[in-house]
């Protein structure tokens, strides 16, 4: 049976791989530099986390334009609050928390189908047919994810698509590890039920 991390390994190829301890140490240095007034240090944090933040936002709204707006909003909120970041959690946990809250409070202004990723900005490494089939399947699943109950949706997105540990997800969402596991289990079952029901319609 494939474990969850193994099943997900292929979905996050472009994310730079760093040992967690080293990653957190680098973040601490960058945060300290920001707090000391080094403006460029924040750009480095944006560059490092913009993919994670954008993808998280995309999972909530399922369209590029809103995800783009939300990602910017997340970083601005982080910038405004950075002086108050004391390092009680890792920077990434803190940033994810801001991102999830931003997503929950965001009212989508665009319908998913009206705002697909502009063709010029899409990655063209796959053939058109292959892309079409895969995109359609992905779109159905992504839409089903947005209809999951709030906690289940957040847990599934963070665990499955961001490959975080149960402990990290529990720190971000402020729930216990047991609750995270239960929510993820329910989310996976519900996702399957929704998609089966849709296929039968």
């Amino acid at each position: 049976m494939p474990s969850i991390p193994a099943a997900l390994a292929a979905s996050d190829e472009s994310a730079p791989e760093l040992a967690p301890a080293r990653r957190h140490e680098d973040d601490r240095d960058a945060v300290a530099a920001c707090q000391g007034g080094e403006r460029e240090a924040f750009d480095r944090l944006v560059e490092k986390y913009q993919r994670d933040v954008y993808r998280l936002c995309y999972r909530y709204v399922n369209n590029h334009q809103d995800a783009n707006d939300m990602a910017q909003e997340v970083f601005l909120k982080a910038y405004r609050a950075l002086d108050r970041f004391r390092g009680d959690s890792s920077f990434s946990t803190w940033l994810y928390r801001i991102a999830v809250n931003t997503c929950l409070n965001f009212r989508a202004s665009r319908k998913p189908e009206a705002a697909e990723l502009p063709e010029a900005l899409a990655d063209k490494s796959q053939g058109p047919l292959e892309r079409l089939e895969r995109d359609e399947q992905s779109r159905l699943v992504r839409e089903a994810v947005t209809r999951l109950p709030e906690k289940q949706r957040a847990t599934l997105i963070l665990k499955i698509y961001h490959d975080l540990t149960h402990e990290e997800v529990s720190a971000i969402l402020g729930s216990t590890v047991g609750t995270v596991k239960a929510n993820l289990f329910h989310a996976l079952g519900n996702l399957r039920k929704m998609l089966v029901a849709e296929a039968g319609e």
Binding site: M1, I4, A7, L8, S11, S14, Q50, R51, Y54, R55, Y58, R59, H64, N68, A71, Q72, E116, L117, A120, L121, A122, D123, K124, R134, D135, Q137, S138, L140, V141, R142, V145, L156, I160, Y161, F185, A187, L188, G189, N190, L191, R192, K193, L195
Partner: peptide, 25 residues
């Protein structure tokens, strides 16, 4: 059921923007 849900979820990627987009963001 959860396993099947996992298989479905794992394949649903977000459309990948090009490097130009990351630069603009």
């Amino acid at each position: 059921e959860a396993q099947a849900g996992l298989a479905l979820a794992a394949g649903a990627e977000v459309p990948e923007p090009s490097p130009v987009y990351w630069e603009s963001l």
